[in-house]
Each structure stands twice: as C-alpha cells, then as structure tokens.
C-alpha cells in the first residue's frame, strides 16, 4: 500500500526528454511553474496544454503514469475548487440559497484553478519521471553552486537529498513491517475517528525513528570508511555537459515564455469567458 507513492519515481525510457541535461530540465520546470501563475485565460491554458502534450508525447512516459500523481492530490484539487466556487464574489449570480451563493466568476475561477493545479502536477512529474534522482540532485547542486559563496551548502543539500531518496523505500518497508508486527499483536489501525487513528501512529513512529537514527549512524560510518570528506577534491563519474538538444530546449523555453507573455498582454482584449 505504501509502495504506491510516486514521489521521485523514475520511469526509464529512451527519449529526448530523458536525455536532456537535468539542469536544463530544472530551469524549464521552474519557469513553467511560474508561467502557470501568469496565465489567466482559457486560451492561455489551451496553449500550455498543447505544449505540455507535446512534452508528454516526447517523453515516452505513458499518460496513465502521470495521472496517477493527480489521483493522490484529488482531494486538494476538489477542496480548492470548492472554496473558489463558494467564496468568490461576483456580479453574475447563477444560484443562491441561504448563505450559499454561486457566481459565474467563481465557477470560472474554480475551473481555472483546477486546470492550473493539474498542469502543475503533470509538468513537475515529467521532470521527476524522466530524470534519475541522481541527475536531479546533481543538477540542483550545480545550480546552487553560485550561491555557495554566501554560505549555501550546495553539496551538502544534494547529498542529503540523495540519501533521503535512497532511504525512502527502505523506511517505507520498515513502516510496513512495524505495522504488521503490531497488527499481529492486536493493534487496530483501520477503525476509529481521525484523532484515534493519529494517536495509534505514535507506537509506529517511535520504533521507526529509533531505527532511522541507527541506520544514520551505520551509514555515516560506512561513508567515512569509503573516504567521504565533503566535496573537497571530489570528482564525479558522470560529468554534466550541455548537448545540442539542451541549447535547443533553452531556445524553446524562451519562445514559450514569449508566447505566454504575449497572451497575457492580449488577455485584456479577449472576451471574459476565454
């Protein structure tokens, strides 16, 4: 059950997107997310969906895989939609009963919010599905390097992320084991209200934390035994090098941002429902 979590899951395939440099993908994803908050028209979203569709197609990752990620945050999406529908003030009232008022503006805003969230999840999952965690952390380390002078521990952050990613499945397995061991002794995790359920997690968390600390201790010793001493004089097996495709991707990003800005400027002249 715990194995279904898709965060940081890599989907191995041979595609242009997979081959792109992690740094380029990180930068593109960053600007893509920014652009989502810049778009405010349905025409704009249509354009983003079109571009995203191309990217999904090029990544050769089945769409089913991406949609899996959305399923897990469906509640958040519905909640956001609900708040937007009921809380938005507007002129065109569609429905009114007691204190509940639904306006046309609210409905449009809710739909836009949902689209925005879904695009956000799919867009960022393209990044994690096509980039190995190692490439990702290497990319982050590289992008953070200029800030090292003002004290950003770029290498340490990347190392911590790698180790966290490495141990997520291990600790999930362990949680499963602890839960089963406690169920075997009569613990009940399925009934009761939210507070009762939360309380029952404590006996799971205590042994989990203890074992995590023990693992950390072991790992630190193992790393030391393998001569780890920070990023001083450290080399990398796979050095990052920009390929032709990476430059093309950057040009594409600039074009994309250009269109987004143009659409935003043009938005004022469009009818409200677009």
């Amino acid at each position: 059950m715990l194995r279904d979590i898709t965060i940081g899951q890599y989907y191995p395939a041979e595609s242009i997107i997979h081959r792109l440099d992690a740094r380029v993908k990180l930068v593109i994803t960053f600007f893509y997310i920014l652009s989502l908050f810049f778009v405010n028209t349905f025409v704009g979203y249509l354009f983003v969906i079109f571009v995203l569709g191309l990217a999904v197609k090029a990544s050769k990752v089945p769409l089913k895989f991406m949609l899996k990620g959305i399923k897990s945050i469906m509640i958040i999406i519905l909640f956001t939609a609900g708040i937007n529908i009921f809380m938005t003030q507007g002129d065109t009232v569609l429905f009114q009963k007691g204190i509940i008022t639904i306006t046309q503006e609210g409905v449009f805003l809710a739909i836009k919010m949902c689209i925005r969230l879904i695009l956000l999840i799919i867009g960022s999952s393209i990044l994690t599905l096509t980039t190995t965690p190692i490439q990702l952390t290497d990319g982050i380390e590289y992008l953070l390097r200029p800030w090292k002078k003002i004290g950003v521990p770029a290498h340490e952050i990347a190392m911590m992320m790698t180790i966290a990613l490495r141990f997520i499945p291990t600790l999930l397995d362990e949680t499963d084991k602890i839960m089963k061991a406690q169920q075997a002794r009569g613990a009940d995790f399925d009934t009761g209200n939210v507070i009762q359920k939360a309380k029952r997690l404590i006996p799971i968390l205590v042994p989990l934390f203890i074992s995590a600390f023990r693992r950390a201790d072991d790992l630190a010793m193992a790393m030391e035994a393998r001569c780890y001493h920070g990023d001083e004089n450290r080399t990398r097996m796979n050095e990052m090098k920009y390929q032709k495709a990476d430059y093309v991707a950057q040009v594409c990003l600039i074009c994309y941002l250009g269109v987004i800005i143009a659409l935003r400027v043009a938005a004022a002249k469009l009818p409200f429902f677009l």
């Binding site: 190692i134 490495r166 291990t170 790992l219 193992a222 780890y228 450290r234 080399t235 990398r236």
Partner: peptide, 24 residues
C-alpha cells in the same frame, strides 16, 4: 541496507573513487 549511499547501483560503486578524486 545501511551502507549503500546512492539510488543507482553504478553511482554507489562510484562513490568511493569519487571521494578519492579519481578522474571521471
């Protein structure tokens, strides 16, 4: 479990020589 650092087999093997500063 507690002595493997990386999420990919080859990256983990490379961890030691990387620390020693061996050329890529």
């Amino acid at each position: 479990d507690n002595q493997l650092v990386a999420t990919v087999v080859e990256e983990d093997i490379a961890f030691g020589p990387e620390n020693l500063g061996v050329p890529p």
